[in-house]
Simulated assay, not measured.
Amino acid sequence: MAEATVDEQRVPAPRPTVPRRLLAAATRLFAERGYDRTSVQEIVEAAGVTKGALYHYFGSKEDLLHEVYARVLRLQQERLDAFADADAPVERRLRDAAADVVVTTIEHLDDATIFFRSMHQLSPEKNRQVRAERRRYHERFRALVEEGQRAGVFSTATPADLVVDYHFGSVHHLASWYRPDGPLSPREVADHLADLLMRALRP
């Protein structure tokens, strides 16, 4: 195989698109300073774009706040749908989904922190939209629990709604204690929490 030329080796990586730069800047600033204390001017300066670009792609600072959380939820919804639709026993599908939401939350911990700290600052309309998106995710997760309960592989002693609240209560609490330099990796935390859920569901 021919070696790359010097010019080919020096080709820089593509620069992130304007929306991605705005989201990255907003996420960092919201996490560091808080949504209230971050101005539109600070966001555009950090992203290296104009205010016109921000308003073109997002419309407002509130739209940026909404997208910070929505992009992670979209990712998690796509992954949950893939696990739920897989050709595998329901125990495996639920455990995979339970572990995955932990890993993806930790991988986007700033986003989760911003959301739980600032969700109340969304307009009523956007707040309803976010709640509907979260509800769809939780309902798909709950359907896996109910499938296992109907099949007799999961205990029916605890209602499926409470099982979902139990697991996601742990997930939502991650932002308050998990540290990247701590003793547990994201996968180890995910395995522990997923195993706790599966043990709680044993008949």
Rank of each mutant, 00 (worst) to 15 (best):
T17R: 02
T17H: 06
T17G: 11
V18Y: 06
V18K: 06
P19F: 08
P19I: 05
R20T: 11
R21E: 03
R21A: 07
L22K: 04
L22Y: 11
A24S: 08
A25S: 07
A26L: 13
T27E: 07
R28F: 13
L29P: 01
F30M: 06
A31K: 10
A31I: 07
R33T: 13
G34A: 06
D36A: 04
R37K: 10
R37M: 11
R37Q: 12
T38V: 07
S39C: 05
S39W: 05
Q41I: 00
I43C: 02
E45Q: 06
A46H: 03
A47Y: 02
V49Y: 00
V49T: 02
V49G: 00
T50Q: 11
A53Q: 08
A53R: 03
A53M: 09
L54I: 02
Y55G: 00
H56I: 02
H56K: 06
Y57H: 04
Y57R: 00
Y57S: 03
F58D: 00
S60R: 04
S60L: 04
K61D: 07
K61Y: 14
D63H: 14
D63V: 13
L64D: 02
E67V: 13
Y69R: 15
R71Q: 12
R71N: 12
R71V: 01
L73E: 15
L73D: 15
L75T: 15
Q77F: 05
E78A: 10
R79C: 10
R79Y: 10
R79N: 15
L80W: 05
A82W: 09
A82H: 13
F83M: 14
A86T: 11
A86I: 12
A86C: 14
D87P: 10
A88H: 09
A88M: 12
V90A: 07
V90K: 07
E91I: 05
R92W: 11
R93M: 03
R93Y: 00
